[in-house]
């Protein structure tokens, strides 16, 4: 049987196309086993459903700053205000555009837009709320990610794999809390710390608070909680005896944008 060059190319082309599609179809219909199994550290902190309570009565300006500093230091979050080499200085407009933040301060009317009351107490008006990823129980960012680079763990922590992320930023459009940042440029000239326990990021990937999953795994509390002097508490929402449940039982708490159905898991005592 003879075959013309044209037919050969045609068949080769279709086989390649089919082969590419068939692989994903196969993986979708018959998901494989995990290739490796890990044994957890026996000291690891665990929960059925992690949640955080922020007690604004105990959170003063200095503590809030400390929480932000601790988080951004251990996670190698760049500070565009402060380059290692002064030559890399950027202008204020770029700083706003490129900002990366995992935990930050915001006034009441910005943290809870649409809920600004006519006459809120002066002290609440002045408060700086600490905002971070809400580790939603029904996270819109996870719903939209086309590569499963962001996903919800069984214990409720919404994770982000910066090595799988393709940088499409669909999750940033989906997040109703503005909790996600993108690496619009190389962050490394703006990272002062030399903490090697958490990887720095490359250009073009999304990142956000990971509830200090890497610290929980070693039995440490999240960095912000550790330095918060009791203002921030994490614990198991499903455990009626946990400290988080205790706080929720004895205080009135509010959450951000509950009407959207994402079921955020950061609670604020005002």
């Amino acid at each position: 049987m003879s075959i013309s060059r044209r037919d050969f190319l045609r068949i080769a082309g279709f086989s390649t196309l089919f082969g590419l599609g068939a692989k994903s179809a196969f993986e979708m219909l018959a998901p494989g086993e995990l290739e490796a199994k890990l044994t957890p550290n026996p000291k690891a902190l665990s929960a059925q459903r992690w949640a955080m309570v922020v007690d604004m009565r105990k959170l003063n300006e200095q503590t809030a700053e400390k929480c932000i500093e601790a988080c951004h230091r251990v996670h190698n979050v760049p500070d565009f205000e402060d380059p290692i080499d002064p030559k890399d200085k950027i202008d204020p407009e770029e700083k706003i555009r490129w900002e990366v933040k995992w935990i930050w301060k915001e006034k009441y009317e910005h943290a809870f837009p649409g809920q600004a009351e006519v006459a809120i107490p002066e002290k609440i008006h002045k408060l700086n709320f600490l905002l971070l990823c809400n580790h939603c129980d029904n996270p819109p960012c996870v719903r939209v990610c086309p590569t499963k680079a962001t996903w919800k763990r069984e214990d409720g922590v919404v994770m982000m794999d910066q090595h799988r992320c393709i940088g499409c930023r669909y999750c940033m459009a989906a997040c109703p809390y503005g909790a996600r940042s993108f690496n619009w440029r190389d962050p490394r000239p703006f990272i002062k710390g030399d903490d090697e326990s958490y990887p720095t990021r490359e250009i073009g990937v999304v990142e956000k608070c990971n509830f200090c999953a890497e610290r929980l795994a070693k039995g440490q509390l999240p960095a912000c909680v550790e330095v918060s002097k009791g203002a921030l508490t994490v614990g198991d929402l499903n455990d009626a005896k946990s400290k988080v449940r205790e706080l929720l039982r004895t205080n009135f708490t509010i959450r951000r944008k509950t009407q959207l159905g994402s079921n955020p898991q950061v609670y604020y005592i005002v």
Partner: peptide
Amino acid sequence: DLGKPSRLFNVLLHPTP
């Protein structure tokens, strides 16, 4: 528009309906 165009095929590698 992709931040990491080199990883484009992750969409096929990890199909997410």
